[in-house]
Design a protein around this nucleic acid. Structure first.
Lengths: 200, 200
DNA sequence: GTCTATAAGGAGATAGAC
DNA sequence: GTCTATCTCCTTATAGAC
């Protein structure tokens, strides 16, 4: 029992540190992007040394993969937590709003679009791709429902809507507005939602 | 006179080679992105050696900067060539269509959004920024006219419209559709324009 | 498990011959 | 002006002491 408790405690501490590492990774990633992020950056941000970092994640690719997976988990949780009374369109809108707010809060670089390098790396990551497929299935269902009830343009292929929807979660206009206009985060989110669903 | 002719000839050949280098740079960039593009890649694609490449462009940053500047020049030319009879909205639409087609044709990575590294590098490039400002002024004028005549949402700040417009020129949905759907380029362009101006 | 020190290799940039 | 060969620095990843 005491041994079990010890194991469990160690396990918890381990998980905690891993989470701290993934937090730091997310921060550094959102600031510099994948290619410019070094393992020294991450180790430094966490306050540990590089070899210790490698005890937790055996490569840079794995580290970033895990950070992205945690991100997808967040999105999947968000969907699950949505009020069941919402219409499909309202759900899609709420989820996009959540993604934009996470990004404005300094998280979520949503790299897949960023560079071919990162995209290919993630597509080789089975664990990541499984989550993507899961998330994609749910979003595709929402899109098709919204097209059926007329709240999304039914003349567009659902592919187009779905990919464009993903693209809006990492719309660079968000960074530009956040950097070059004096707009509040709330206003940015509101306007971006308008642009996404109603157009320019 | 013969000396001048010789100089002029040499100059022309020089310009031609430079253009070939910039073409290769554009191709490689659109394929791998800035960070993964090596000077060896570019030299290899042109069929010259690395030191020769450095005779033309004294650093990787300058090389990419020049490629981006040439791109902006193309956009500025496009605007100038637009039929004067078009409405502001039609002009904006035509220009976005041009940008999307260039990208589908394998050019124009439109990196600014891509990575913080590239964005910062370009913002330090005075020649590049001057062109950006020039282009921006023209587009801003078009946006404001279109808002006044009611063809673009007048309730949105023109900042939001302008940045979102830029974002559409490098919308990652284009690559996704081009890669994962069997859609023709024409259809992709048509749908992307619909999504941009009318929303989802 | 954590650190210091270091190996291994890649990529930007250049020296120097032709 | 072009090339071969090389320098130098940076970054990923690890060996080995404590």
């Amino acid at each position: 029992m005491s041994i079990l408790a010890k194991f469990s405690f160690k396990d918890q501490a381990f998980k905690l540190r891993e989470n701290a590492i993934l937090d730091a990774t997310t921060t550094v990633l959102s600031g510099k992007g994948y290619d410019l992020m070094t393992m020294d950056d991450v180790a430094g941000a966490v306050g540990i040394s590089k070899p210790s970092l490698y005890k937790h994640f055996k490569s840079k690719e794995e580290l970033v993969g895990e950070a992205m997976i945690r991100l997808l988990d967040g999105a999947i949780e968000q969907i699950a937590a949505l009020d069941a009374g919402l219409t499909p369109l309202e759900k899609l809108s709420a989820l996009l709003e959540w993604a934009l707010r996470v990004r404005l809060g300094g998280g979520l670089p949503f790299l897949p679009s960023t560079s071919p390098h990162v995209r290919d790396m993630l597509m080789r990551n089975i664990k990541y791709m499984l989550k993507v497929v899961k998330l994609n299935r749910q979003l595709e269902a929402l899109v098709k429902q919204a097209q059926k009830d007329g709240s999304l343009n039914a003349e567009l292929p659902s592919d187009v809507i779905l990919f464009s929807y993903y693209a809006r979660t990492c719309d660079p206009a968000v960074e530009f507005l956040s950097k070059f206009s004096k707009m509040s985060d709330d206003d940015i989110v509101r306007h971006m939602l308008t642009v996404a669903f109603k157009g320019l």
